[in-house]
Each structure stands twice: as structure tokens, then as C-alpha cells.
Computed example of a mutant assay.
Amino acid sequence: MILLVTGCSSGVTNGNKDEPLTASAMGTNSFQLIEKSIEHKVDLLHPTTQETLYSFNPKIKPNTEEYEKELKSIASNLANDLDKPMVPAKFSNGKLTQGQKRVVLDEAKLVDSLKNIRALDKTVILPVEEEAPNVTEETVKGIDEVVIGSYKTTFNAGVEGRTKNIALSAGTINQIVLGPGDRFYFNLVVGERTVERGYQKAMEIVDKEFVEGIGGGICQTSSTLYNAVTAAGLEVIEVHSHSRSIGYVPPGRDATVSWNGPDFKFMNNKDYPVMIKTIVDTNGGSIEVQILTSKQAAAKL
């Protein structure tokens, strides 16, 4: 008689059907779990254009401070490329010229997303926030009717270069319109002070000393604006004082500015639009800055 045994287990061994297999008779397999760093590429995409702005190789479940520093560095570098401050709108000759929207990358949110990437993720949409100037043709009607804050300073009109610089910078900020929540950055609006743009040499304060530089005198424009802004009750975001006292405003009431240096920034914290108006007398030597709004908005004050 022929006995056929099939399957992967049997109680039959050496002809004795009742003897079970002993543990020593079984094959022994040992498994060792090895932690692997599985690398895969994740593309970080612009939310609007879907363009890949960075390709990232994440680590699976890391728990190191170095890795978090790496993620923060990636977010910071992307923010430097993406972030753009708001350029406010301008109201000229009865028409509204739209400015530039504010663009901000939420760095903390991006870092959190990168820390929680899953193995099958291929892309991450960058958390970019965009905010356009909050004004329209309708909301700026009558915006030049009422002065809600103003300030005036004087200068020596005989100093040609300084007078020219004050007039040029004042003309740049004239009739700028800020809707509710809109921001004003002096350096951004006025731009770089260069000979090509019409600025001339004049005395300015550098490290507590008076030195000659291109654009000297524009700090009188920014300081006059600063005092008008505070008189109107607008919110100051950033302001810096000169390293020594100046004569055209009281101590501590100045706003020094320089390209790629100190800036003067403020925000319209009202629930209605306001407009900046500058009046420069190059013969008599004076600059006045007014903050205006409509009669309807002023009635809320």
C-alpha cells in the first residue's frame, strides 16, 4: 500500500502517525526589522500657477531639531522669493489706479505640512496668502472732502538739492489711497533714491554725523507724514528715529528712512478709505501732509 501525504503539516514522521514534530525539527527563521530612510521627491507648487518652486526629499518620521531647522530654512528661502508688500492704489485726476496685491507665504503652516508628509505624497501646495488693495471706484467717491489729520514742517528753500528731494518724494506719496486694512511702506512707495530718478545730493544724518548723500532731505517728508498719520489716528507699524535730534519736528517725532535700511510703515485701521495729500511750497520752504476722507466717513468720527 502506498501512503500519500499532502499539505504543509502532518502528524506522520518515521512511520509513527501519532508523533508530532518537535520544535527542533522545524526550520527556524529570524526576522530583523531594519529602519530605512525611504527617499522620495515631493514638489512644492505655487497655488495659482501650479509651478514647481522647490523639490523636497522628506524623511519619514524624523525626530531631530536639525530636520526642523532644515524645514524652516526651506520655508524662509521660499518666503524671500514669494513675499511682496502691498503697493497701495492712487487716486489721480478723478481716476483710481490699482496698486499691487500683498503676497505672503505662511511659513509656519508650510513647515507643519512638510513635517507631516506621507510616503505616497507627491506634491504640496504652498500656503500663499494674497491680499489686494481694499479700494474701488465706488468707495473712493468724495475721499478728498475732509481732513482728519495733518502736519506741516518748514525747510530752507535756498538749499536746492534738499528742496528738490523733498518735493520729489512728496509728489510720489501724494494721492495714495488706503482702504481698510491696507498698508503703506515708505521705501516701497517712494522707491530707491538715485540720480537717475531725479534725486540730488544733500546733507543727511549717518551715524550721528551730517554727511552728503543722494536723496538727503526725504526724511523730512517721511517725518511730516508720520506726524500726520498719528494725528489721523492711523496705526503705525514701524518707525525709527534719527541718531541725533533734528530741527523740523520735536524730539522723538521723526521717522528716518533709508533704502535697504530703516523704513516707515503704517496701516489704515479705519473701516473706510483714506487718502494722503501733500502740499509743498518750494519758494517759501514748507511741506504739509494731510490725511483725508469723505464727509460720510468723517461723520463716523
Rank of each mutant, 00 (worst) to 15 (best):
N283E: 01
I291K: 01
V239S: 09
I205H: 01
I279V: 15
I214D: 13
R253M: 08
M275A: 07
S286I: 09
A297C: 11
F186G: 06
S286L: 13
E235V: 07
E196I: 04
R197E: 04
C219H: 05
G261W: 08
T230V: 08
F264D: 11
Q290V: 07
G191C: 09
S286N: 11
K270H: 08
C219T: 03
G198F: 04
V257K: 13
Y248R: 13
Y199L: 06
G191V: 15
V274H: 06
N283I: 14
T278A: 15
G284R: 14
K295A: 13
H240R: 13
F264G: 06
E192C: 08
V211C: 01
I214K: 07
G215C: 01
M275V: 06
C219G: 05
D263C: 04
A202Y: 15
V211S: 00
S223A: 05
T221G: 03
E212R: 05
T256I: 10
K270L: 12
V190W: 01
Y199M: 00
P273W: 14
F266Y: 15
Q200L: 00
V239A: 09
N283T: 15
S222A: 08
R253S: 01
S223V: 07
L292A: 10
P273A: 10
M275K: 11
E288M: 12
L234H: 10
A228M: 00
K295E: 06
E212W: 02
T230Y: 03
S245L: 11
S294I: 15
M275E: 14
A299N: 09
L234S: 12
Y199D: 11
V189Y: 09
G215T: 10
V274N: 04
T278K: 06
A255N: 02
P250E: 06
V280T: 08
I218E: 11
K208W: 07
G284T: 10
F266K: 10
N227Q: 03
S245K: 12
G198L: 06
L225W: 02
E238N: 13
G252W: 03
S223C: 00
Q290A: 11
I246C: 13
V189A: 14
G191N: 07
A232K: 06
D207R: 14
G216P: 00
I279N: 09
F264P: 05
T224Y: 08
T282K: 08
S258H: 07
Q200P: 01
K270T: 13
Q290C: 06
E235R: 05
Y185I: 02
I279T: 13
P250G: 07
G261K: 12
F264M: 15
